[in-house]
Amino acid sequence: MSNPRPTHQTLSVVVENRSGVLARVSSLFARRGYNIISLAVAPTDDPAFSRITIVIDIETTSVEQMTKQLFKLVNVIKITELDPSDSVERELLLATVSASGEARSQVVELVGLFDGKIEDVGYSTLTVMLAGDPARLDDLEELLRPYGITELQRTGRVALPRLERQAPRLRNATGKAS
């Protein structure tokens, strides 16, 4: 599959889990005029640290500058640049959709096709949930739109690097490694 040039890049930033750190990160973005698409924060397996997953709009923001500036924050421990093609990216979507009459079964079917879930049922609305690849979330969102989305909440993506499954030598041979 040939992807168009990615317009985003993901940074996985491990920070000290203390008050004010998120404010430092976000005020750095504001101060330097960096554009981000989404940001998700949660503690890591070690509660002393949190992981911030930032999706950057690389058409307007230099990943290199952003990484270097972030690194200057005393509370930033580690930054991993995650190439979209080399990482597992997931996101969760919740949407409340108008679904009465005929539309109801169509929405249920659609959500089923995507392996999503109906999380709440009202007289004329449904709240649906889908977790997965952000592009699939985009697709479902678009297909639901004609029915009337009354509430939409997405978490912003979280990501981890893909696991090494081939021996490094083999990867070298395919010219992919560095």
């Binding site: 004010g20 404010a23 430092r24 005020s27 200057k72 005393v74």
Partner: peptide, 14 residues
């Protein structure tokens, strides 16, 4: 103070 001076200090702490 910490909020106001965040972007004009190398680091600050309350």
């Amino acid at each position: 103070t910490v909020g106001i001076t965040r972007s004009v200090t190398k680091h600050n702490e309350l």
